[in-house]
Write a protein that binds this DNA or RNA. Structure first.
Lengths: 211, 211
DNA sequence: TAGATTGTTAATCGATTAACAATC
DNA sequence: TAGATTGTTAATCGATTAACAATC
């Protein structure tokens, strides 16, 4: 399947399909239709069909997609097959939680090491926690392209600048701070504040309805 | 300022403005223009202006907004003024990280307690961790409206069902699982997989450019 | 063949951007 | 007054949805 241009909106839906497909028990039919997927996930069936068409050409009228192939196609499209090495800066609670999360491997993410001003007692979760001073040399030596920022907000920009200076091209930012970066560098904000805004807006609307 | 209808897209940008506004040192001008904000955050100035107009009417031509008032207006709009009580289910690493994060108070979120199958040794971060059996009675007694799910994927749906059964209206889901809920209940997925997809796509594109 | 499903082309919808008038 | 900035109205853009032809 040759690679088509894909919008961010579609890209963000793909992991959902993948996760659902993987959760289906093996003893059911090896085929699955876009219609079925759409109903299971509460989405529009045209949207699902169109999304799938972008990443796979295994769909057969009347039958649907072979589940295994579809999983493979989406995984490959998302780059889950070839792992990405990353380093993490800030080994506080959140940082350690991410370090310890074994599920990232399934997404092709491999956190090599963490860095912190306190190079903490032991190696957390089997991954080394180095003093922050070693950040630059480590990144350069290992040609790391992705950095995960889990430091308190006020240090995030500084850490980000250092990461970029040593060759990092993509930043996963858990600090509740806007990061300024040069063109060509991607910042993906894991924005708790954004989620909370959506949630509390919903609750506010609920309250009002009640009155 | 009377409340206008607001789209989700706008809603998601508001916390970014707020956070930036709060980060500005006090010794600078008490006024700030949409143009300035836009440049600082790397956004279109028309977009920022339009967003601000939805939540505040304090903008004055040539001068801009009084920063303090703008902060107040956005905070109020987002409901950060009146706190929302929530409970958390799943006191693993991630759950404890969230429990321990003091920053939520600024967003009007108050995590009352956590529940887990292992009602862990001590109270983590000053909040009690109760056995999961007490979930229902606690939620009903305290009229909790928001639940945070940080259990492993395979238990997420069951936990979600239980939460809804005891009156919860908004679910913040950190499990990498799609949750089926009845109409009227909001699920906000804190979707690491989604973020990772965007990140690795960026890196893949980078690699290709290099070749 | 008939029917379910795919994939594509056209129409609709919503959000962003551009243009401009109003105002201090 | 002139210029910066706001807020609004119109135009553009992109994504979703609907309609339909193709296919097994």
């Amino acid at each position: 399947m040759e690679r088509k241009e894909i919008s961010k909106a579609v890209l963000k839906r793909l992991p959902g399909y993948l996760s659902y497909l993987k959760s289906i028990p093996d003893d059911t039919s090896p085929y699955i239709s876009a219609t079925f997927l759409a109903n299971a996930l509460g989405m529009g069936e045209v949207q699902v069909r169109k999304d799938l068409a972008l990443v796979s050409d295994g769909g057969r009228p009347k039958i649907g997609y072979l589940r295994e192939s579809l999983i493979e196609d989406i995984s490959q499209f998302l780059g889950y097959d070839n792992t990405t090495d990353a380093i993490l800066v800030g080994a506080g609670k959140l940082g350690q939680a991410l370090l310890g999360y074994s599920g990232f491997a399934a997404y092709g993410l491999n956190i090599l090491a963490a860095f912190d001003v306190n190079p903490v007692e032991n190696q957390a979760e089997g991954r080394p926690i180095y003093p922050i001073e070693q950040l630059e040399s480590y990144c350069r030596t290992n040609k790391v392209l992705m950095g995960i920022i889990t430091v308190p907000g006020q240090y995030a920009q500084e850490v980000c600048d250092r990461l970029i200076a040593c060759g990092i091209k993509a930043v996963w930012n858990f600090a509740p701070t806007h990061l300024d970066v040069p063109a060509g560098i991607l910042v993906q904000n894991e924005n708790m504040a954004t989620s909370l805004a959506v949630l509390s807006m919903h609750l506010q609307a609920q309250m009002k309805d009640k009155k």
